[in-house]
Amino acid sequence: MAKERLHPKSIQDKVWHYCPGCSHGIVHRIIGEVIDELNIQKSVIGIASVGCSYNNYEYFNFDVIQAAHGRAPAVATGVKRVLPNNVVFTYQGDGDLAAIGTAEIIHVAARGERLTTIFINNAIYGMTSGQMAPTTLPEQITKTTPVGRNTDYHGFPIRISEMLALQEGTAFVERVSTHDVKHIIKAKKAIKKAFMVQQAGLGFSLVEVLSTCPTNWGLTPLESQEWIKDHMIPYYGIGNLKGKDIKV
C-alpha cells in the first residue's frame, strides 16, 4: 500500500537553497511538523538569525522576523513581552548564538523568558564559507584554523548548552543529533517538548542540534553524518541536560 507523502502545512512547498547533506532542511521539517502537531501555525512567531538560515521565512509558513547577528533572543523577548500567549522561538547557529550573541542568549535564560531556541551547532561558520566557530572542535581544520584548532592559541570549544542549563530560568535543555533516523526522531521529540515547556510557561527551553556542514567540512553528505557520530558526539555528548522529568 502506497503511503501518502505528507507535507507539513507549516512548511512552504519550495526547493531549499541549502547545500546537499546540510541539516537545516531536516530541522526545518521537524519544526514544521511539530508546529502542525501542536496546532500553533496561526500563533507561532519565529525569529530568524544570521547564518545560512537567515531567510528561513522563505520556507516556514508562519510569521517570522529576521534579526541582527546574535540578537534573536532580544528580538524574541520584545515579541514575547508584547504577546505572552504566542509561542515564540529563535533559530540560531553556533556563531550567532555562542559568539556574537552570547550575552543575549545567557540573559533570556537568566530571565526565564518563555521562549524556545533551536540551536544549530555544526562546529563551523557556514554562510561565510568555513571559518572557526566557538564550537569548532580541537584540531578541526577550518579556513581560520588552517592547521587545526590549537587550543593553546585559539582556545577551547564552548559548551554553551551546559552553561544555559545552569541558569535558574532555564526549564529544559537537550542536545540532539541529526546523523541518522533514530537520532532525528529523538531530535523531533526534544523539539516538541521544548515548545510544550514554553506553552506550559515553565521557563526558557533550548534544543542544541548537532548538525552537518558538508560543504565547509570538505566531506560528502554521508561522511558528514559519520563525522558527527565519530567526532562531535564524543566531544559534546548527546542527551538531556535539564528538565528530563518534566511532564508536558
Binding site: I45, I47, I65, A67, A68, R71, A74, V75, A76, T77, G78, V79, K80, R81, V82, L83, A103, E104, I106, H107
Partner: peptide, 26 residues
C-alpha cells in the same frame, strides 16, 4: 505594559525591534 531592563543597550534596541515587529508602540 512592559518595563524591561535589558542586559545592554544593544539588547534593548533589539527588544524594541521585536516589539515593533508585532505591531506595538514601543
Amino acid at each position: 505594559g512592559t518595563f524591561l531592563q535589558a542586559e545592554s543597550e544593544i539588547a534593548a534596541i533589539n527588544m524594541v525591534y521585536g516589539a515593533s515587529a508585532v505591531g506595538a508602540r514601543v
